[in-house]
Nucleic acid binder design. Structure first.
Length: 275
DNA sequence: AGTGTATCCTGCAGGC
DNA sequence: TGCCTGCAGGATACAC
């Protein structure tokens, strides 16, 4: 589910609600989302204060005191829901996997229907090593079009697969990869190394444009995704190709096509994106 | 270095 | 109504 814009929306919501809270207790309802034993996870979080909330790619980072943090990968259906008091009745999350209880009486729930998400307590050093294996942040000021162009030249893989690889660029998933490729006029199966300078520059600009616009819209809700307030992402209204197969291209009227490669659906306009 | 396939899960839509 | 198939914002491991 959540890509960079959805993770960013969640991060912004949590900054307003859970920073400053102290974790008094943790309930692990679904141990399979942990990447470590229940006991080392509990030992790594209990008694710690939440100092800040950050994002790296699609991961939400809950920064704790004493150089520790909780790294949350949201997977396909994961979400982080803050509550001022223990939720009752209809407000209760449907698939609570981990619940962090605060000294204030509030709590933070990692809710994940399919449980492809992961939650892990780490120290900063371990996280930094992990983070160094991920690609650059596409929205970072220092990430230039020339960097994208240069990196593309090393790979024969289809550009859509290249964009989904978190080791190459961090945070891009299937929705925004497809949308940016449409705006840049690039066929999803175009070999990365064949993308010319001008095209790479256009892709860089459209990637940023799509990600920024999606953040502004609060993300994209297809079915599961909800922000920290339970609201939906409005970017779904601005999708040009994702999920629009057999509909007309909004630019040229050609029928949007769906193909499958790399185990994922790709959506494109055969008129605007010629291989 | 690629690709295809399978795996981890649940839920929903569509066809019959 | 119910059963079946296919599909899903992700990540990884495997064989070829």
């Amino acid at each position: 589910m959540p890509e960079l814009p959805e993770a960013e929306t969640i991060v912004r919501g949590l900054r307003r609600t859970v920073v400053g809270e102290t974790i008094d207790h943790v309930r692990v309802a679904r141990p399979d989302v942990l990447r470590q034993s229940r006991s080392s996870f509990a030992a790594g979080v209990i008694g710690h204060r939440i100092a800040a909330i950050e994002r790296r790619g699609k991961n939400v980072l809950i920064q704790l005191d004493q150089a520790r943090l909780i790294a949350v990968n949201l997977g396909m259906t994961g979400g982080l829901l803050p509550f001022r008091a223990p939720p009752r009745g209809a407000a209760r999350p449907t698939h609570a996997a981990i619940t962090f209880r605060f000294g204030s009486g509030g709590c933070l729930v990692f809710n994940d229907t399919r449980r492809f998400g992961t939650v892990e307590a780490l120290d900063e050093t371990t996280w930094r090593a992990r983070s160094s294996r991920m690609g650059p942040e596409p929205l970072a000021r220092g990430y230039r079009p020339s960097h994208l162009h240069a990196a593309l030249q090393h790979s024969r893989s289809p550009i859509r697969s290249w964009l989904l690889d978190q080791r190459r660029v961090a945070g891009i998933g299937n929705i925004y990869a497809n949308e940016a490729l449409f705006l840049a006029g690039l066929h999803p199966q175009r070999p990365a190394r064949n993308v010319g300078r001008e095209e790479a520059y256009a892709l860089h600009a459209h990637l940023r444009e799509v990600l920024n616009a999606a953040i502004e819209a609060g993300g994209t809700t297809i079915r599961d995704y909800r922000n920290a307030d339970g609201g939906q992402g409005e970017y779904v209204r601005r999708l040009n190709v994702y999920g629009r197969n057999e509909e007309e291209c909004l630019l040229c009227g050609t029928e949007i096509q769906r193909i499958v490669f790399g185990g994922r659906s790709a959506f494109f306009c055969p008129g605007c994106q010629v291989l």
